[in-house]
Amino acid sequence: MTTPATASSLREATSPEALTRARRRLLTAHPDPTRANTPMSGSLTDEQVRLLAASDWVHPRITALDANTLTTADTITRALLAESVRETLVRRLAAERPHGTYDDTRAGHDAFSRGVVDDYDHGNHHLARATIRSADPGLVTRAALSALGLPDTDTTIIDELAQASDTNPIASVLADAALLDLDRYATGRGLRYSRVETALMLAAPSDQCLADAIYRLFRVECGWRRLGLLR
């Protein structure tokens, strides 16, 4: 895990470059922002998207990302900040992911399933599947920031920004990051393990080995069963 930041971990999300990238991504979701009745995503209206797409658009100047900034920000600025913070968290999540048998892509998850079948003759043919339950958003945010090595002081800002869009672009990133410690434990012990979002699989050479792995992984080490996050 990285060392917790001493300054605001979200400062980079307010830079002109980050906000410009956020603007580009928001407009990419609206192929023709000059046209009326363009399908909207999030909380931006047709008119707001057209304003964002204007040739004379200038990025907002934000000196600090705090509660006062969010209270006074207009809808476009809040959408830009939500997308920019999402990008910041995604990059940090990518840097923190463990390496090994874990592959967080859908293709990697499918390859894991095929690998278990292909490896049947070598004994790893006992498979367990689990689904991670939705948890209280505050709990998820705190767990995610801890796993990413970010300070708790960012919790309020991130929770507020997560509500800046109807599609909640930050929530899925936080949910993924909240499970990093689970991933680290599994891959650090060489378990045959794969997780994509809330879908998780484990493979072992015997029922007993699989039961031991499940017990250690979910009950003893990470406590996900105790927290009510696993079914």
Rank of each mutant, 00 (worst) to 15 (best):
A64P: 02
E96Q: 10
A164H: 11
R226V: 15
L180W: 04
H30W: 12
S165K: 07
D32G: 09
R97E: 14
A204M: 07
Q163I: 01
D207F: 11
W57E: 01
R24V: 11
P98T: 01
V173D: 00
N68W: 15
N37A: 10
G223N: 11
R61T: 13
D176E: 15
R91A: 13
I158P: 04
E12F: 06
T167E: 13
E12Y: 13
R114S: 08
T6V: 09
S41C: 05
W57H: 12
P31C: 00
E197T: 12
L179E: 06
R91M: 12
D66K: 03
R24K: 10
D159I: 06
T2P: 06
D32A: 15
T155R: 05
D181P: 14
T88L: 07
T101R: 13
D212G: 03
T141K: 08
F218P: 02
H59T: 09
P169R: 04
A211R: 14
M201H: 09
L27E: 01
D166G: 14
A67Y: 06
R35V: 08
L26E: 00
Y193V: 02
R129N: 11
L89H: 04
T69H: 09
T45W: 10
T198Y: 09
A22M: 07
A53L: 05
Q48W: 04
A94S: 11
R23F: 01
E17P: 03
Y215I: 07
R129C: 13
D110Q: 07
T14Y: 02
Q208Y: 11
P151Q: 00
L227S: 15
Q48D: 04
L182S: 02
R97K: 14
L217V: 07
I157R: 01
L10F: 05
N124A: 08
D46N: 14
S9I: 03
I62H: 07
T14K: 07
A107M: 13
A22F: 05
G228V: 09
G149H: 05
A82G: 01
A29M: 05
L51C: 01
V58Q: 15
L81A: 13
S172H: 09
V196Q: 12
A164V: 08
D159W: 01
E221C: 04
L65Y: 14
L52D: 03
G138P: 10
L80S: 05
S134R: 15
L70R: 01
T2Y: 10
T88G: 08
E47S: 02
A79G: 03
G149A: 08
L27H: 05
N68R: 15
R92D: 08
L230M: 10
L230S: 05
A143M: 06
T38K: 11
E83L: 01
G42P: 05
T131A: 12
R216E: 07
M40D: 02
A211C: 06
R23P: 11
R35Y: 00
R195T: 05
A203D: 00
L150Y: 10
L145Q: 00
L217E: 00
R11A: 15
D104I: 09
V117K: 06
V90A: 09
A128D: 03
D104S: 14
E221V: 07
P33E: 04
P39T: 04
D121K: 12
T63R: 12
V173I: 09
N168V: 09
A143N: 00
R92V: 04
R192T: 08
